[in-house]
Design a protein around this nucleic acid. Sequence first.
DNA 1: TGAGAGACATAGGATTACGATGTCACTATC
DNA 2: GATAGTGACATCGTAATCCTATGTCTCTCA
Lengths: 108, 108
Amino acid sequence: MNANLLKGNLDLILLAIIEPSPIYGGEITREASERTNGYFDFKEGTLYPALHRLEKSGFIKGSFQYLPRGGSPVKFYELTESGKKELSDKRREQQAFDQAMSALLGKS
Amino acid sequence: MNANLLKGNLDLILLAIIEPSPIYGGEITREASERTNGYFDFKEGTLYPALHRLEKSGFIKGSFQYLPRGGSPVKFYELTESGKKELSDKRREQQAFDQAMSALLGKS
DNA sequence: TGAGAGACATAGGATTACGATGTCACTATC
DNA sequence: GATAGTGACATCGTAATCCTATGTCTCTCA
């Protein structure tokens, strides 16, 4: 996978994965990988700074919780209201970009 | 336009615009803008370093030529054989990324 | 001759993905 | 019960890349 293609799309992807229900870091990576047949494989140095960025911007909110199976507590993230708006904005933005790309490349 | 979305896609766009026939910088910008109704508006600080990068990589080849209407000579670029291969590789890469994005976002 | 336009060029800053590394709490094994 | 292993979270430094700002050069036109 070309790393640069991810730039500018990572936030959108994370917001979209978090949207349905609270989820923590490791599960986000697994979800992204499974749903794309291994195409996406977020590294920790990619995922965690991005989550912090989103939290700092107020788009997501995290809280540590214990899993039923024990172990260390994990940080569950969920969308804030502002995050929901950001998600739909970014979806639109991405569609506009896709459309422009198609106009240049010719959809084939 | 979100600048980050362009990252990793600029080379593909330039190669695609250059492919049909030799073209110089200013015309590339105009072409990109016209075909996307003004969505793309490459800045000089974006365009020229990118062209240099592609030329240094051997994907395009430039030569100064005078325009019929006079003025300073302009630098026409055209694809090399290696550039044609790069273009088709990048097209494929982009399609794979699109597909993965759709799998995550749900094409709607 | 001087102002302006068009094309090409590049340095510096900002953003962002990622490799490398570290910490911490718990689990399993010997 | 000491030791090694695992999963999750965290952060530093690097590399890549787009863009703002600035500059130069050539030609045209007033």
